[in-house]
Amino acid sequence: MSEPSVRRAGNRVFIAGVALLILWVLLPIWLLFVNALSAPAEVTGFPKRFIPSFDLASLSFFFGFSGVIDALWNSVKVAALTMILSIGVGAPAGYALSRFDFPGKETFRFLVVMTRAFPLPLLALPLAVMFIRTGLDDTIIGLALVHTTLALPFAVLITYSLFSGIPLELEEAAWTLGCNRVQAFTKVILPLAAPGIAASAVFAFVISWNEVFAAAVLTVENRTLTAFLLQSLDVSPLPLKFAGGAALVLPALFFIFAVRKYLFAMWGIANR
């Protein structure tokens, strides 16, 4: 074969490979939505069609099912609280790491990085006891605290990299132009870091939204959507499962789309 035809064949293989990988990612999601958007009889029926009938009976069955709306609302509340807590606690730490050299800095970084080497959802076991003692058991706040522990290391490292990306000179310039530390932060650093901070907040939201184990361990009455779905897995009919799955996936699609620009800022820092 001549050079160009070899290259053309290579290109075709490349394009086919890319198409295959896209199909691999998207097809299973498509199938879930086919189920969610079909009538319950179709979901349990056989054989399956690969296109949805756009019958909303499954979804209305799901949303009408006792406890679903509460669970959904609980998920949103826990995730929102996690988002606020992890940024509120994590961003100041990220800022401190990016701007100061001080004894103990490496110890702190080690503590944060170390959390990654531990299976964090297991924390829920001892915390369940602690929460019972403090009255935080089966509450939105209790679960949000655990989810914040999951999200906090990311929030710290992401905001650390965000703030490090903003030259210290800009802050110093603001100081020489009449700002105190707080003003320089709000007038210069915050506007520049805001999109990134928002992205890491969304990321914290997703971590909480998706978390299953701790949610299932720590909540009984106030279950989140994941805990609800997990605990009713062996009793609930298929249409309920698939509609629930779709309800979990759909926001995630938007979240990832919203933070797509920052995915690398978030994970690239993992290399440091």
Binding site: P167, E169, L170, E172, A173, A174, W175, T176, L177, G178, C179, N180, V188, P191, L192
Partner: peptide, 20 residues
Amino acid sequence: LPPRERGIAMVFQNYAVFPH
């Protein structure tokens, strides 16, 4: 005193022009 109370102005090596 902090920089803002010293009656100075400064030009930085990388200009530090606020991007936003």
